[in-house]
Amino acid sequence: MILVAIDTSTEQGSIAIARDGVTLAVEASQGGSHTVWLLAALDRLLRDVGLGRDNIDGFGVVVGPGSFTGLRIGIAMTKGLAAASGKACAPVVSLDAIAAAIAAAMGSAMKGDCTGRILAPVIDARKGEVYFALYKVEKSGLRRLREPAPASPQEFLAASAGAIVGGNGTRLPVIADHPGIEIVALPPVAQQAAAIAFSIFSAGHQVPPEELEPIYLRIP
C-alpha cells in the first residue's frame, strides 16, 4: 500500500511517501509557506521513487495539535488530493508522530534501546504554552500515558522529568536550558506519520476527506 503522509503542524514541515509504512522517500521543508513547498515536494518525491499519482492508495496527514494555520494548510491540501483521487485519509496525532520520531532517533524502540523509558514530545503552542503528551516505550510499541494538552513550560518540565524530549517546543529557552533535560533532534516527522497512517489503514480506521478535522485543543 502506497501512502503519502503530510506534516505541517509546525514550521518544520515534511512529506513522505511510503510503502506499507516503510518510507521510500521523504522531504523536509526548507522554510517558507507550507502552501507553496508541499505540492512541489510531492511532485519531486513521486518522480524520485518512480511512481505516478495514480499509484497512491491513500493519504496520511498530521491533524494536530500544532500551528493552526499550518494544520489547516496540510489538511486542506490533503482533502483536495483525496477528493481528486477518490482515496481515503488517515488522521495522525502530531504528538504520536513526534513520539515515534523520538524513538526512531534514539535507535529503535523495538530493539529495546529505550524500552521502559518515557518519551515527551513537545510542540511550541505560542502564547507562552506548549502542547505535550507522554508515552512509554514498551516492547510492543509506544503506549500513550498522558493525553495531548496545552500546558505551561513549567508544567511540562515537571511532568516530563526523566523523559526523553523532542519537538519544536524544545527551542523555548526555559525548556532547552533546563538542567539535566535529555533532548533529541528529530528526523522529518512525516516518516513516522506515514507509518502511523499505515497502521490506521490496516486497522480499517481510515476516513473520507470530509471527516478530517484539526485537533486545535484551544478555542479561538
Binding site: T35, L39, L42, T69, R72, A76, M77, G80
Partner: peptide, 20 residues
Amino acid sequence: LIGSLLIGISYAKALAYFRQ
C-alpha cells in the same frame, strides 16, 4: 483574510495538481 484564502488555495492547488 490570509487564513481564509489559504483554505481555498490549498484545496484548489491539490485538485489542479492531482488532475493535471
